[in-house]
């Protein structure tokens, strides 16, 4: 079985305990206006061109015979600055598991492991499940998910993970639809299932100024989170620079100011992280 992966990051610092590798699954059903990984949105392989440094030398437009260049209408093997790559690489499940297990020694030494992220890993639930079957019991596996998936997909993946880090973004269904493109009902249902399951988990709330980071939303999310541990993540716009690289435009809807004061006070068990 094959999965589409757009990055594997070694020494990922904020994706669980210990030293970890994070695997980024390509494709996401959500379209959060603040998305940090625009190259993870599409379910298709796509060109990723670091345009900021491009000198328009035109070499990549030279006709070539490389089979892998054909779908993109550009030569991928000629840029003198190596600015052109393809976001999305197909991995065989066995090969990916083997690749990730290379670092098992340091994962074990440090209480670390592998984190599945994206994109939305649950969009490739079958592949996730197959990968987890190969990793479970060998390394600690965490998942970062929006929680937007059917109960079946959610459960068959989550049940094989050691730690679930799930986003809570907006409590209001209309706001959720407006800023992420999808209904939050499946997410809230899955959040409840997660809480009931006894599985080690953590809710993460991206603090997007004027969108999620409002007193009203934070209070409402606190209700949903209940006793579960919560991490409030502060936001920066560094990802905006990546949007043109995949031919997307960064949203102008993000405001400047968010909730002022300590947002953890609304929650039973929350910490802030930069």
């Amino acid at each position: 079985m094959k999965g589409l992966i757009f990055d594997i990051k070694e020494f990922a610092l904020h994706d669980g305990g210990g030293i970890r590798d994070t695997v980024f699954f390509k494709g996401c059903p959500l379209r959060c206006v603040w998305c940090h990984n625009p190259e993870g949105l599409s379910r298709e392989r796509e060109l990723y061109i670091r345009k900021a440094r491009c000198t328009n030398c035109g070499l990549c437009r030279t006709p070539c015979n490389h089979p892998d260049c054909a779908p993109f209408g550009r030569c991928l093997h000629i840029c003198p600055q190596n600015l052109i790559s393809v976001a999305g690489q197909e991995w065989e499940c066995d090969a990916l598991a083997e690749h990730l297990l290379r670092h098992k020694a340091i994962f074990d030494e440090t209480g670390g492991g592998v984190t599945l992220s994206g994109g939305e890993p649950l969009l490739q639930a079958d592949f996730c499940e197959a990968l987890l079957l190969r990793l479970s019991g060998k390394v600690h596996v965490a998942i970062e998910t929006s929680g937007y998936a059917s109960e079946e997909h959610f459960w068959k993946v989550i049940s094989k993970c050691d730690l679930v880090m799930m986003d809570l973004k907006l409590a209001s269904p209309t706001a959720h639809k407006e800023f992420t493109g999808v209904n939050n009902d499946p997410i809230l249902q899955n959040a409840k299932r997660l809480q009931k399951s006894g599985k080690e988990h953590l809710f993460r709330i991206p603090r997007i100024p004027s969108i999620t980071d409002t007193e009203e939303n934070l209070r409402a999310l606190a209700e949903i989170a209940g006793e579960s541990p919560v991490e409030l993540l502060s936001y920066n716009t560094m990802a905006a620079a990546k949007y043109p690289n995949v031919g997307r435009e960064f949203s102008r809807r993000i405001g400047k100011t968010g909730f002022e004061g300590d947002p953890t006070k609304f929650f039973q068990n929350a910490v802030c992280r930069k």
């Binding site: 020494f11 610092l13 904020h14 210990g18 030293i19 020694a105 340091i106 030494e109 440090t110 992280r273």
Partner: peptide, 14 residues
């Protein structure tokens, strides 16, 4: 933060 510093320390130890 102390957590990421600890992880770098683990890397050096490794």
């Amino acid at each position: 933060n102390p957590d990421t510093i600890r992880k770098v320390a683990m890397l050096v130890k490794h």
